[in-house]
Computed example of a mutant assay.
Amino acid sequence: MSKTIKNIFIEGAISPLFISESIAKHASKKDIGAHSIFLGQIREDVIDGNTVKAIEYTAYEDMALEKMNEIREEIFEKYDLTCMHVHHSLGVVNAGEICLFVFTSSKHRKMAMQACDEMVERIKAELQIWGKEIFNDESHQWKVNK
C-alpha cells in the first residue's frame, strides 16, 4: 500500500492564524506531552549596502516532496513522535513574515525538540528549494543558506 505524499508547500507567507489554528487542533490529543515549534522568518538583512525586502522561494516540487517524504519517515523511525507537521512557503515572502513552520509532538519534550531540530536542518540541507533575495532597489540574488 503506497502512502500519500503530503504537500508541504504554501503559496506566500505562513500566517500567524494558520499557525495558531494548527496548535489549537492538538488540544484534543490527550496523549501528547510536548510540542516543539520552529518558525523561520525572513530577515531584513543588509548585504553590500542593499536591504533585503523579501525572498522569493521556488522548488523542484515533485523531487522536494519525494525527499521530504523520505526524511519524514526516517524521523518517525528515529523519534517516538505523535505527529509532525511541516509547511514551507513558495513565492514571495516579505521581511518579517514566516516562511517555514515545523511542528513536532510527542509524549516527552526531548523527542519533540530533537525531531524538530533535525527536521529543520535536513530541510535546509536536502530539499530542492531555492530562495532569491529581493532588495529594496528591486535587484536580486540567490540566497546562500547558513
Rank of each mutant, 00 (worst) to 15 (best):
H88T: 04
C116A: 11
Q128I: 15
F135Y: 15
F135C: 14
L39S: 11
E74F: 00
V46K: 14
Q41I: 15
E73T: 02
K25M: 02
S22V: 11
V93G: 05
E126Q: 13
E74D: 01
L39V: 07
L100I: 15
H26N: 13
I47R: 14
I32E: 13
Q114M: 12
R122N: 05
K132F: 10
W130Y: 11
I55F: 07
I98Y: 14
R72V: 00
M63G: 09
S28L: 15
S105G: 04
A112P: 04
S89C: 11
M119F: 09
L127F: 12
M68T: 01
A24L: 09
M84K: 00
D45L: 13
W130L: 14
M63K: 13
A112W: 04
M63N: 10
K30E: 07
E74V: 05
C99F: 14
G33F: 08
L127N: 12
E70W: 00
H35M: 08
E138N: 14
A27D: 06
G49R: 12
E44C: 14
F38D: 13
K29S: 12
T104S: 06
D137N: 15
A95G: 09
F38H: 14
A59D: 08
G96R: 00
V93F: 05
E74I: 06
T104C: 10
K107T: 10
S106Q: 01
I37K: 04
A24Y: 03
S106F: 02
D48T: 12
D45V: 15
I98C: 13
G49E: 01
K67H: 07
G96N: 03
V120Y: 03
K29I: 14
K29M: 11
D31G: 11
Y79V: 00
S22E: 09
E126N: 12
H108F: 09
E121P: 00
A115P: 00
N69H: 12
N50D: 15
E121A: 12
V102T: 02
E66Q: 05
I98H: 06
E74C: 04
I47Q: 11
E56K: 10
N136H: 11
Y57F: 08
N50I: 10
I32S: 13
K53F: 07
I98R: 06
V46I: 15
M111R: 02
G131T: 08
Y60I: 07
H87P: 02
H87L: 09
N94T: 06
A95C: 10
H108G: 03
K124Q: 07
E73K: 03
S106W: 01
G49A: 01
L100V: 15
L90S: 04
A115I: 02
S89F: 10
E97W: 03
V86Q: 05
G91F: 12
I98N: 11
M63W: 02
S106K: 00
V92Q: 11
N69I: 03
A54W: 02
E138T: 12
E66C: 03
Y60S: 06
A27F: 11
G96W: 09
I98K: 09
G91C: 12
R72E: 00
I47G: 10
Y60H: 14
A24F: 08
K124V: 06
L127I: 08
M119P: 03
M119L: 09
G33V: 08
M113T: 07
V92M: 07
C116V: 07
T51E: 00
D62T: 05
A112L: 13
I129L: 08
E74S: 05
S28M: 08
M63C: 04
